[in-house]
């Protein structure tokens, strides 16, 4: 009797183990015909990543795995270098300053040429054709601040910065083209310690009056929603940030067709279009999948 029960128990455990190990195997690995698409952790980059994914899915038999909303620039870039992902959307200015740690280059074509060459040489990564939009970093103030101080440019802002609280995402404080460089060029002295938060929460924070000045991307959807005043970078601190898919050379060698497929998007998305798509996702709360799908089918790409 006792033996029987014991056997039952052991069988039960064995069955559970087999189930769990299968689960492990399934959770762990991928295959050779898998393309992993990553993105940074904000609406626009997620939408672009989703577009790449849908475009590849509809044009090939490859299995597309989405690793969207992964984290900041450096997170995606490390993952790309390691091969945890194959493709993600990047911006020329970011590639230049944050990754290559080079000085700002004002001419967009020159910037693109430098990042294409250096990424290929140093990291084995290819920049595909730019999508058209220039999602530059810039500074914005809340409407109340604008009405009170009448600031139009960064230099205007510097004069009153002692009264204003600055806040930004964690990444901004840790890049060449970020907070420190900006402070050095314009001499900002903001009130108290700058506030740090998740990149997507900046708008809520400035909307609630928790801070007065923040860094934004020129194509962000919520600029309009929160009625922010975008300031002029009068000393030209921020470089242009043209968006393009970047892909591992290794992946491109295995699947050369990806180049033409993704280059179909080249020049298709200008600033106004991107701002509109961002608005749909970030403000109207439409799903990333449907926004990407609607855009691609309206353009006749899928």
């Amino acid at each position: 009797m006792r033996n029987k029960i014991k056997k039952k128990g052991i069988k039960l455990i064995a069955a559970a183990m087999i189930l769990m190990v299968t689960a492990l195997a399934l959770a762990g690995c991928g295959s050779d015909n898998e393309i992993k698409i990553g993105s940074k952790d904000f609406g626009e980059n997620i939408v672009l990543g989703e577009m790449f994914a849908q475009l590849i899915e509809s044009n090939t038999d490859l299995k597309v795995t989405r690793k969207l909303n992964m984290g900041g620039t450096f997170v995606c870039f490390e993952a790309l270098k390691k091969g945890d992902i194959d493709i993600y959307p990047e911006y020329t200015g970011t590639g230049l300053t944050a990754q290559l740690k080079l000085d700002v280059v004002g001419d967009p074509e020159e910037a693109y040429r430098i990042v294409s060459e250096e990424f290929d040489k140093q990291f084995g990564i290819t920049w595909l054709t730019p999508l058209g939009l220039n999602n530059t970093y810039t500074l914005a103030v809340s409407n109340e601040v604008y009405e009170k101080y009448g600031v139009e440019t960064y230099s205007d802002l510097a004069k009153v910065s002692g009264d204003l609280v600055f806040g930004a995402d964690h990444e901004f404080f840790n890049r060449q083209d970020g907070f420190e460089g900006l402070v050095n060029v314009y001499g900002f002295q903001f009130k108290g310690e700058p506030k740090k938060m998740d990149i997507s929460l900046k708008y809520q924070a400035i909307g609630n009056g928790d801070m007065d000045v923040t860094d934004i991307f020129a194509t962000d959807g919520p600029i309009r929603q929160y009625n922010l005043k975008v300031l002029t970078d009068d000393k030209g601190f921020f470089p242009p940030y043209y968006a393009a898919p970047i892909i591992r050379n290794e992946t491109l060698e295995k699947h050369p067709e990806l180049k033409d497929i993704l280059n179909q998007l080249g020049g298709m998305i200008d600033d106004a279009t991107m701002t509109e798509l961002n608005y749909l996702v970030d403000v109207e709360g439409q799903s990333v999948e449907s926004v990407a799908l609607n855009f691609l089918s309206a353009q006749g790409l899928i």
Binding site: V21, A23, L24, A27
Partner: peptide
Amino acid sequence: MSNLTPLIIEHLLIVLAAVAISAVI
């Protein structure tokens, strides 16, 4: 809202895999 099923399955697989390993150890 996108389909949740794959996310639920992935979540469950991650947890089962981890607990299986942890049970053995």
